[in-house]
């Protein structure tokens, strides 16, 4: 560098100014990102319209791109079906015999249950399918475990609906565009499913951990030992998931108990989006204000409300 001259050469000055400008822009951009993240913490549903538009862009492209792969996959499946057909048929026959015996016992139970419900006047909201659609894309590379389905607001799909596969629960919708929606899978760390352990009747939460297995947490009555093979079904608590949908099986009862999901979204190309079991009323304050005696909100939701305002889902 020329020390005698007081001025730096123009080119060098320009480069230094540009570098300084670049550093300032980088800092500003990173600060903006952090501010966006804090906004996302305060208001997770922000930018919902942008997210919906992005879903509508992504999903149709993947629907077309995956067509040839679906054909190849079906071909492989058909070929695989022929191999090992005999052993599978024998195994299925054995299972069928067991299932028939269990079914007879179940029939008797069902009759008894119906009689009891009639006696106790239990009003149960029914399950209602909104649409059956397919999974078209997923986020295998991201921090969240979500899948994209090819049905959106135009089919009646909104955020907060249960998504069920052939073998059990897949997840729930969290965003909806006009022709596509995003499903939060059970394996996502943000997923919380209220379940009942079928053998013991205990309530618990099934939580995802970004791993193939799920974790069972917040079990009511943790002193009752669990066993590998205990089945978990949705309990209906929280009002999103209808009760009785298979969620998984306990494979390791040590704390925290490990759960294998009943349905794998990988195999479930087609899924059913159902209406929320007991959707929260849009405005619950008037219902509470109308009754003269204070009634717990839970009791109101479970159907113990005044005759004048029956639960809307029960009428469907």
């Amino acid at each position: 560098m020329d020390w005698t001259s007081g001025r730096r050469p123009t080119a060098m000055r320009r480069e230094q100014n540009l570098a300084l400008l670049g550093a300032v822009v980088s800092g500003a951009v990173i600060a903006t990102g952090l501010i966006l993240l804090i906004i996302a913490r305060v208001n997770p549903d922000g930018a919902a319209r942008l997210r919906g538009a992005m879903l509508d862009l992504l999903t149709p492209v993947w629907s077309v791109v995956r067509l040839p792969f679906d054909g190849i996959g079906r071909g492989v499946d058909v070929a695989g079906d022929y191999f090992g057909a005999v052993t599978r048929a024998r195994r299925l026959e054995a299972e069928l015999a067991e299932a028939r015996a269990a079914l007879q016992a179940r029939d008797a139970d069902r009759v008894a249950l119906m009689q009891l419900r009639r006696v106790a006047r239990v009003a149960e909201p029914g399950r209602r399918a909104i649409v059956t659609t397919r999974i078209v894309a997923a986020t295998a590379g991201a921090m969240t475990r979500t899948a994209l389905i090819a049905a959106g607001r135009s089919e009646g799909v909104t955020a907060g609906l249960p998504v069920v596969g052939a073998d059990g629960l897949i997840g729930r919708t969290i965003e909806a565009g006009s022709g596509a929606a995003r499903v939060l899978l059970l394996t996502d760390p943000a997923s919380r499913i209220p379940v009942t352990i079928v053998r013991t009747g205990q309530a618990a939460l099934v939580v995802g951990a970004n791993r193939p297995r799920l974790e069972l947490r917040d079990r009511v009555g943790a002193d009752v030992p669990l066993a590998a093979g205990d089945r978990l079904v949705t309990s209906g608590d929280g009002g999103v998931f209808p009760p009785g949908i298979p969620v998984g099986t306990i494979v390791d009862p040590r704390e925290p108990p490990q759960v294998r999901p009943a349905a794998s979204p990988l195999g479930a190309a087609y899924v059913r989006v159902e209406a929320a079991y007991l959707p929260l009323p849009a405005d619950s304050t008037p219902a509470v204000a109308e009754s003269a005696t204070p009634v717990p909100v839970e009791a109101l939701r479970s159907g113990a409300r005044p005759r004048a305002a029956p639960a809307a889902p029960a009428l469907r």
Partner: peptide, 16 residues
């Protein structure tokens, strides 16, 4: 937006 992550996560990290 494409991955359904909190807005700003990848944006901050890519710029960083």
């Amino acid at each position: 937006l494409a991955f359904g992550q909190p807005l700003g996560l990848d944006a901050t990290l890519f710029a960083l």
